[in-house]
């Protein structure tokens, strides 16, 4: 805890923003990374991953609100999101 703690109101706002936008980032990254891994045509796989992405978002929101430490929560959402997004971009076919 090197940084000074934020005021409760700001901490709450940050948490809500993290849940909404961090969760959306995680869901987006999920929809990017998972299609190449599924044993289906690309179109079907993209649709499947997108449909599941909304579940990821809901779970991410709930998880964010169970975490005590905001920085840990941010890392828990954003690092996997970055990794998955990078993987999805690498696995992109020649058509896109």
């Amino acid at each position: 805890m090197a940084l000074p703690r934020m005021a409760p109101g700001w901490r709450l706002a940050a948490r809500v923003a993290l849940a909404v936008f961090g969760g959306y980032a995680l869901a987006s990254a999920f929809a990017m990374a998972v299609p190449p891994l599924l044993p289906a045509s690309l179109a079907q796989a993209v649709l499947a991953a997108t449909l599941a992405g909304f579940v990821v978002h809901v779970l991410a929101v709930l998880w964010t609100f169970t975490q005590t430490d905001l920085r840990r929560a941010s890392a828990g959402l954003l690092l996997p999101a970055l990794a998955m997004a990078a993987f999805g971009l690498l696995m992109r076919g020649p058509g896109a």
Binding site: P35, V46, T50, G53, G88, A96
Partner: peptide
């Protein structure tokens, strides 16, 4: 609630389509 969202899933969550279809 869930089926209501996924009607236009690729509009609300376009990342998958954008990555693999442009």
């Amino acid at each position: 609630a869930y089926t209501g969202i996924v009607f236009t899933a690729t509009l609300f969550l376009p990342a998958g389509v954008m990555t693999h279809y442009g």
